[in-house]
């Protein structure tokens, strides 16, 4: 079973994301900010990270920079999931090593499409 780390300071968003990702057969762990997410990644890297941008302590962009420099840190697929919905932020995320980008609000279809896009789930599964 593939693993996904959901990083968001809103427990509601984490809960919704968890339900969607478990439906796509991911084993889900949660972190409420970038620093806690980094601790988890230092122990074990997930296959995927669903990543909010604005969070207390350490934001998503800074977390991604640290995670990418860990041994094997180039492997996880990072999918941003944020209310930052402008081209400047998207371009910054992509050049910083993000694989995909979701603009909130999101739903199951968008997550499935984006995860299929980066090869985390088969394309057919996104159609269901």
């Amino acid at each position: 079973m593939k693993t996904c780390l959901v990083v968001d300071d809103s427990s509601v968003v984490r809960k919704i994301a968890r339900r969607i990702l478990e439906g796509l057969e991911f084993e889900v762990t949660e972190a409420e900010d970038g620093a806690k997410a980094l601790e988890i990644c230092q122990r074990q890297l997930p296959d995927a990270v669903l990543l909010d941008w604005n969070m207390p302590v350490m934001d998503g962009f800074e977390f991604m920079g640290h995670m990418r420099r860990l041994p094997g840190g180039d492997q996880p697929k990072v999918v941003f999931c944020t209310t930052e919905n402008n081209v400047a932020h998207i371009a910054q995320a992509l050049s910083g090593g993000a694989n995909e980008y979701i603009m909130k609000p999101f739903d199951k279809d968008i997550i499935a499409d984006k995860f299929a896009e980066v090869g985390l789930i088969p394309v057919g599964q996104a159609m269901v």
């Binding site: 081209v87 992509l94 995909e100 603009m103 999101f106 279809d109 984006k114």
Partner: peptide, 10 residues
Amino acid sequence: QRGLPIQMLV
């Protein structure tokens, strides 16, 4: 956000 890769959107 349906089916369109983010690079293509940008």
